[in-house]
Structures are given as structure tokens and as C-alpha cells.
Amino acid sequence: MVWASLFAVKENAIGEVACVRAGEIDIFVYPEHYSEIRVGSIIAINSDQVKPVGLAVNIAHEPRHGSIHPLRKGREEILREYPDIDYQHRLVLTVVYSSHVKGNTLYHVPASMPRLHDLAFLVNSNDLLDAFFRPNGEWNFDFLRYVIEAGAQPLTLRGLFFTHRDYFLSKDPNCQSLVRALARPLYMADPKNVGRYLECILEALR
């Protein structure tokens, strides 16, 4: 029931769906969660039926009104003089839609699209990471096929593994089972660059 508990408290949402394109979902991130989000974060969306899950592959910070004016101040000064400045900006997180949760089961395949304003949650507890990376008790990186298909480069995956480095190393300190599980989906996604992807991933875990 880990997924249900994730969605149970709406205050835990880190943002909401701002745009949906084929295979990609833009999330408007609430300012108070800016610092928690990075490339490689796993985001789950509380839609009606199935719950889309995906990997953050891009983060864009942009002014809400088209442009910014230079202020020539430090962050503390800015916040003092413009306490709501973060609300004049927006942080848009692009998530590759690779997986979904139905009931309490996760499948590494996209299903129906979320709706605008559906709440997005950060998957970061070990239970949730287990449910995502090891849905049947064994490593399953099939979601990487969608992520790479969407254009993710080896460095993107380096971000994913660096973000969850402690989690991965706690499960497999010598990385052998990880490599064994990663090789097939990486090959299927980009056969010519399997070595390079693995190299970047292992660098992140070292």
C-alpha cells in the first residue's frame, strides 16, 4: 500500500501537472519544494484511475512574466525586499512518462495521461524506491527504455543514479546485480551505447 500512502496527504504534493505532451509531462513545482527536485527525481502523479510515474529529465526555471530585470543583490537581500519573488517565477519539471501504478502495482509502461492540475509527488522513501525499482522484488529498469527513447543522454542516467546513490548502494554494494539488470533495457533502448550508459551509471555510484 505504499503508493496509496504516498497520495494520501495532498499537502505532500510537490507540484501539479502543467502540460501533457506525448510521453512527457510538465510539472509546475511549488516554490517550497524547489530544492528537493533534481534531474533523476522520480515523480508520481495522483490521477483518477492510473497513477502516472516518471523520471525527471529536465528542470526549467523561468520568470512568470516573460523576462527578469537584473537586481544586483544577494539571495538574502532579494528575499527580504521581495518576499514573494518565488511566486513571480516558476519551476517547470519535465518528466518522461515511463510507468504507472494501478491499484498498488507498478508497471513500467505508460497508460492513460494525467489531467492538468493533477498533483505530483516525489518518490523518495526507500519503500517507494523499492516499489519503483524492484516492483516484483527484483531490479527492473525497463522504464529506462522510455527515458532513453525520449532523448535522455548517459549523463541524465548518471543524475538518476547519483540522486538515489545511497539507496542503490545499500541494496547492491558491488553493483553486480544492478549491472546485470541494467544491461538488457539499456541494450534494447540504445544498443550502440550500452557501454557508455553503464560507464556513466557506475561513475555515479562510485
Binding site: 553493483c175 549491472v179 546485470r180 544491461a183 538488457r184 551505447n193 550500452v194 557508455r196 553503464l198 560507464e199
Partner: peptide
Amino acid sequence: SFYGSRIGNELKDIAMDA
């Protein structure tokens, strides 16, 4: 791509086996 990468031999073998 495997054998040109800087992955340890043991892990290379594991990946290739997979």
C-alpha cells in the same frame, strides 16, 4: 562500446552475459 568503456572486467562480463 562495452570493451571500449572503463567498466571493470567482472562487471563487463556480467553485463555481456545478460
